[in-house]
Design a protein around this nucleic acid. Structure first.
Lengths: 181, 181
DNA sequence: TGCTGCATGTAAACAGTTACATGATTAG
DNA sequence: CTAATCATGTAACTGTTTACATGCAGCA
């Protein structure tokens, strides 16, 4: 079976409730799915055009002052395609986690290197967690039938980040032990 | 900055200790890095050829009986490139987790669908965890200066899987509550 | 004037997967 | 004898990213 392009489903999904421009979709992704699904500009705009050509979304030009936006709305055909995807069993997706790969290839001799990688990563995770917690507070105030699902998928990301945080702290602890020996 | 092909580093890393054939590398990946880094045959063989052309690995023909293998060994230049990579700060890598994406787009009305997705995923995770635990026992018996790092990266994978397990069980619990209301 | 954010896109390059193709060996 | 596993690869296709290109709006 050929690999299908899944970017379309994020776009369709984000258009389910309110029409949006490409830029707004990009912003929405950053605020909501970024921790488990990313899209870049260079995927979003061409995909929206493609979806429009297929009749899955419709485009309307909106101009606020001299500023122009293309607002996309999902069509019934778009909804149908989206729900067909939603019903299908999600495929297990592999992850490629360069940080762990480096860790995997280290030995005790690399401990200076290891420490710096671990510490950097810990700071990144701490920063991400702070963002997530802020987002969580914001989301708690949102009223939508989807609010529960937004919150819980965010909490899944938080839980994963916390696992890494604890794991790294454990590794840093081990590293200290080694130095004292 | 251009995106670099990172497949090479897994191959070089796996050749650090013992020379291997492409097939053996594939097997090693399945037994060790599969949960945080995957490679397919169609990446491994061409990449080994490329590395050989660059002088990062050297190829020797080995025939056990009538069976032929190409055994690759890492060269000093290969080691150098590997350690330069190891020293560089790992880039944060995005993940694309279709399962969560579907969850994110669900509403309470989709609960039948949701239940089947959640239950299927739970079974997949349970199966993966069983594999991981088996691997963990095997690894405990291995004696290598790298054993610690192998074990701990596996445990990172186990911890992540357990987070998803708990998260899904929680969602399934919530789903039951909804049905009773 | 220049910077940041809004807004949309294209071209080129590369990454990565799927499907296909081949053939030997070994265990049942 | 046949299925599974060992073993190596290629071709075609798609996905994805990076870098580039453009221009308006608002503010300091």
């Amino acid at each position: 079976m050929k690999k299908e392009n899944k970017s379309r489903f994020v776009l369709l999904g984000l258009l389910l409730q309110t029409p949006k421009s490409g830029y707004e979709i990009g912003e929405a992704i950053k605020r909501s799915t970024e921790h488990f699904w990313q899209e870049s500009d260079a995927s979003i705009y061409p995909m929206l055009k493609k979806l429009a050509k297929e009749g899955k979304v419709s485009a309307t030009l909106s101009s606020v002052g001299k500023r122009k936006k293309i607002i996309y709305s999902i069509t019934p055909q778009g909804r149908q395609e989206f729900y067909e995807w939603l019903k299908r069993a999600p495929e297990p997706d592999g992850r490629r986690y360069e940080f762990l790969l480096k860790f995997f290839f280290c030995t005790k001799e690399d401990h200076a290197l290891l420490r710096s990688h671990l510490e950097r990563r810990l700071r990144e995770i701490d920063a991400a967690l702070e963002e997530y917690k802020k987002l969580e507070e914001e989301l708690k105030a949102v009223s939508s039938p989807r609010q529960y699902f937004w919150l819980e998928s965010l909490r899944n990301g938080i839980a994963h980040a916390e696992v890494d945080q604890a794991w790294i702290e454990k590794q840093l602890g081990e590293l200290c032990q080694c130095l004292m020996q």
